[in-house]
Computed example of a mutant assay.
Amino acid sequence: MLKGFYTAASGMLSAQYRQNMLTHNLANAETPGFKADQGVARSFPTMLMQANSSQAGNLQNKQPIGALSTAVYMQEQLTNIRQGDVRQTGSATDLALLQAGTTDNQAVLFSVATENGERYTRNGNFQTDAEGRLATASGYLVQGIDGNPIQVDGDSFQVESGGTVLVDGEDRGTIQVVFAENTNILEKDGDGLYRTEEEPLPTAYGNGAIAFQLQQQALENSNVDTAQTMNEMLSTYRMFEANQKVLQAYDHSLEKAVNEVGRLT
């Protein structure tokens, strides 16, 4: 009976982890460039139950009883890298990355410098820092293809579709855009940033397999589907509640076994 007790408990934990993930998605539905997470649940291997027969002293005569499902768990959490809708903002420091020719598992990203090394982002809601350099809202410097920050000296600059930054017609460098051939290697690092434990991502420039362009005065919206996310949250809550009722039923049965069945009369 305790096997079912643990199965119901694991179902509640799995539902809780999924609910936390969906809540995080919904909270970032208005965050530019945010990519929704998707959870993958998996059950432990099914157990095959058999009964041993002791007929004629033979303990090897096994009779199959049936299969027993065991616990479930959140195997992994993947990021849906699909591009979000693009909206016009009118701000010169806002940049949107538009990609084409990529699969659902590939993406282009901006490269930024942090105190922990190179990081990547799809959030083009940039600003200029005190020294006139292009930076993220958290102050991380946007990198050029030469590895140096982009000096814009204010808001009067233009960004061409190919990534070149012009200030009064002067070339101030090209914004570095990198290519992730397999986005499963990317890990979220907070502040809308991604990191990878492998080699730094290669530049997207000169890669004939993909096509991309930058759009100034525009931002990429989050790809979170709020209606679908709320439906999934409701479904997950009901799954949690169902496992909770099973757990309560087991607890009630154990209580009766201890207090009533085992009582001496």
Rank of each mutant, 00 (worst) to 15 (best):
G147T: 09
G147Q: 06
N148P: 04
N148T: 12
N148E: 15
P149V: 12
I150Q: 02
Q151F: 11
Q151L: 10
Q151G: 09
V152C: 07
D153Q: 15
G154Y: 06
G154H: 12
G154K: 13
D155P: 13
S156E: 15
F157Q: 02
Q158R: 11
V159L: 07
E160D: 15
S161M: 14
G162W: 04
G162F: 08
G163N: 02
G163M: 06
V165M: 04
V167M: 00
D168F: 07
G169Q: 08
E170V: 13
D171T: 02
R172W: 04
T174P: 01
T174M: 15
I175Y: 06
Q176N: 15
V177E: 05
V177G: 00
V177Q: 02
V178G: 03
V178K: 04
V178E: 00
A180H: 03
A180G: 09
N182F: 00
T183R: 03
I185R: 10
L186E: 00
L186N: 05
K188M: 11
G190D: 09
G192Y: 02
G192A: 07
L193T: 03
L193S: 06
L193C: 02
R195G: 04
R195Q: 11
T196I: 02
E198W: 05
E198D: 11
E198F: 10
E198P: 02
P200I: 14
P200H: 14
L201V: 06
P202G: 14
A204C: 11
